[in-house]
Simulated scan of single mutants.
Amino acid sequence: MLFSDHPRTHYRAAPTHEVICQLRFPSILSINTTEPADFQEAIRAEFPQYARREDAAPPQITGLGGPNLKIQQQPPVANYHFLSADGQWKLNVTRDFIALSTLRYPGWEAFARQLDKPLAAFIRLYKPAYFQRVGLRYLNIISRARLGLEGRNWAELIAPAYTAPLREGDVDEERFLNCASDVTVKLDSSCQAKIHAGPGRIKNNAPGAVQDPEVKFIFDMDLFMAGNTPCTLAAAALETLHGHAGRIFEGALTDTLRDAMDPE
């Protein structure tokens, strides 16, 4: 199934690798030209580390389909990075979005609290007209070795919606070179989810890094609310997305995997 009404559960061995919340707004050009000193001062206690990077902007294309096609390179976009003292939380601000991410997800309530202050400060200082896209992404990486499930097939651990070919008895799981599922589904009148699911190896792109040979299951959920969301409703929009995320995640699990993740 794609959705489950299984009660919300905290897992001691949850497979969450990274969580990202991003809110996009109509471009505020002053952010690109003036360093956000007032914003930094408002959040410096929680995010004391700071760096500025220049991201390449996509070129502007005009005259598409006509004889006078022009491609104009655009100036780079300033991307301001604010990190917590332990480096586990990162806040990004550009002229188009504000985003919070973490590689050590403590649960939704703590994540939402970590976002409250910087988001309120950003709205107060920059007064975005509205949010064009409110997004919440959960990247889950499931390791059978970590959970003591070596020797178990993915078809025993992940729901049929994402493992259908792996359930065919005439082909062993190890013979599949690729078996990914990509789904875009409407969740309600304003929310959608893009889901990527499938087994694979995680590559470490660092020079000389030792590669992990284990085949893991990647379950990547990108949930978002499009349209113009008033700034005062941003928190409610994120709560709605989180509610959908829980139903999707639980819908992907079998009871065998739930038990291995050690529910609290």
Rank of each mutant, 00 (worst) to 15 (best):
M1G: 06
D5N: 14
D5A: 12
H6A: 14
P7W: 10
Y11V: 14
Y11E: 02
A13W: 09
A13C: 07
A14R: 08
A14T: 12
P15W: 05
V19C: 13
L23R: 11
R24F: 01
S27L: 09
S30I: 14
P36D: 04
A37V: 13
E41Y: 00
F47H: 09
A51E: 11
R52C: 00
E54H: 13
Q60T: 14
L64K: 02
G66R: 15
N68D: 14
N68R: 10
Q74M: 13
F82G: 03
S84N: 09
S84A: 11
Q88E: 12
R95I: 12
R95F: 03
A99V: 08
S101H: 05
Y105R: 07
Y105E: 10
Y105F: 15
G107C: 02
W108Y: 12
E109V: 05
E109W: 05
E109Q: 12
A110V: 09
A112S: 09
Q114P: 08
L119M: 12
F122A: 07
P128T: 00
A129I: 01
F131W: 06
F131R: 07
L136R: 05
Y138I: 13
L139V: 15
L139E: 02
I141T: 05
S143H: 11
R144D: 01
A145G: 04
L149K: 04
G151C: 07
A155D: 06
L157D: 03
T163A: 14
T163L: 10
P165Y: 00
P165L: 06
P165S: 00
R167F: 01
E168K: 12
E174Q: 07
E174M: 04
R175I: 02
R175N: 11
R175L: 14
L177A: 04
D182V: 15
T184P: 05
D188A: 04
S189R: 09
C191R: 03
Q192H: 04
K194S: 13
A197G: 08
G198H: 05
P199Q: 03
G200H: 08
N205E: 08
P207L: 08
G208D: 01
Q211C: 01
D212E: 06
P213V: 10
E214I: 00
E214A: 12
K216Q: 14
I218K: 07
A226R: 09
A226C: 05
T229G: 07
C231G: 13
A234G: 02
A237G: 07
L238K: 06
T240Y: 00
L241Q: 07
G243H: 09
R247H: 14
F249A: 13
F249R: 11
L253K: 14
D255R: 07
T256Q: 09
L257K: 00
P263G: 11
